[in-house]
Design a binder for these strands. Structure first.
Lengths: 228, 228
DNA sequence: ACCGACTGTCACGGTAGCGTCACAATTCAT
DNA sequence: ATGAATTGTGACGCTACCGTGACAGTCGGT
């Protein structure tokens, strides 16, 4: 579960260190040296998670958290606070402002990763690395293999991600915009009709197995993957 | 999983204590009183893990870590630092030098074992010293020998480790980053495309046996070793 | 000190996959 | 039934990605 994570930290060494660890864990780090920068970054590229240093020059970490919670667009983004070991009573205050979790410095990369994973899982319980199965369709993210009626099906990267998403969110209608956000990524700019084309390619790939009819068009809305 | 673990510690009592615990946990302890001794030992009998005291007479624990990371053959060996409580502040700095984890003294044997297990599992899950076999491919870690269809195949060190990892994690797609972490070591900074080159060299070495097609490219993701 | 083995990086070329468009087919409202 | 809106489908250039060969640097052994 790679995620985009914003690091708000004024100390360059620590910022660099955290960013490095995030990258090692497969995440994509964004950086900000202060709260103002962070606010801008957040509104542009909505990160999946924000790591905020408690103490910041200018607007403090708490103020930043409050501000993000106040904005409807950023309200849902989880926040983890980085605090010096100093005080526990502040923790309660911090929790009140809306941080999702706390890490006291100094911390190990493992601890950081564990907290991140926990918070992310709490927020977005979907699209795991488990094998998905729906009817005669089976998709294994680990081996990157897809089979229909035990016959191998080969897909391009995008088709694979698209099918993966549909299988982990089956029996639900998804608009083209939703599919673009989830499969392509929210930051990409692509024509909506591109989704149609990839649905087409997916169907064609599933055709030999006769499973192409699992992908249903809901006119005026979008697409749905269904077992029946 | 029993492992060979090097303990670098100048205090004889603590060294003895740790060695005793390691033995109890089923590991094989090696000892060094200072960094220089450690360097020699490491290059001779490559341990699976190194425990280094932060403070050492002469070359410090950090310097030792740096040195080991600098050497190609030893850079993949995971390192756990033993720090006194007062040195906690320096944790972040230490992480930068390349330690995989930290334990602050005093620590319980239970904690030590937990960390060791975690680091070993993280580094190379299931990469045992048993003979691996996949289809007509056979790899013997002990004798450092590889055969395809009973024909000998000779590989360079990196190719060997790469194939070893792939065989112990077959039928799974690995990104270039994952391969770099597991085969080269997470602290190494190497271009991702380097993986491609080594895959190429591996394939070329396997070609005479016709086994090169076991290594499959998953476009946009990475590589996979498969029997089929 | 020389040589050979091994490694990491680069550059070049081929190509699979992607995004877009144009047009055909389908569905819906009037 | 007819036109408008929506979706299916094939084709086309373009890009990113990967395979490949070459090369320089490093290290160890003779």
């Amino acid at each position: 579960m790679p995620a985009t994570i914003l690091v708000v930290e004024d100390e360059p060494a620590i910022q660099e260190l955290i960013a490095y660890n995030l990258k090692q864990a497969g995440h994509q780090p964004l950086r900000a040296d202060n709260a103002e920068q962070a606010v801008n970054l957040v509104s542009n590229a909505l990160p999946d998670l924000i790591l905020v240093d408690w103490m910041l020059p200018g607007m403090s970490g708490i103020d930043l958290a409050r501000r993000l919670r106040g904005d409807r667009r950023t309200r849902a983004v989880p926040i983890i606070m980085l605090t010096a070991r100093s005080e526990e009573q502040d923790k309660l205050l911090g929790l009140d402002t809306g941080a999702d979790d706390y890490i006291t410095k100094p911390f190990s990369p493992r601890e950081l990763n564990a907290r991140i994973k926990a918070v992310l899982r709490r927020r977005a319980p979907q699209m795991t690395d488990d094998v998905s199965q729906l009817g005669a369709l089976r998709l294994d993210p680990a081996s990157h293999r897809v089979t229909g009626n035990d016959e191998p099906i080969d897909l391009g990267p995008t088709e694979f991600r698209l099918l993966h998403f549909l299988m982990t969110h089956a029996e639900r209608v998804h608009t083209r915009t939703q599919l673009l956000d989830q499969v392509w990524g929210d930051h990409v700019f692509v024509e909506e009709r591109t989704v149609d084309v990839h649905i087409r390619r997916l169907r064609k790939a599933l055709e030999p197995s006769g499973l192409d009819r699992m992908i249903q068009t809901v006119r005026g809305t979008g697409y749905r993957l269904s077992a029946g």
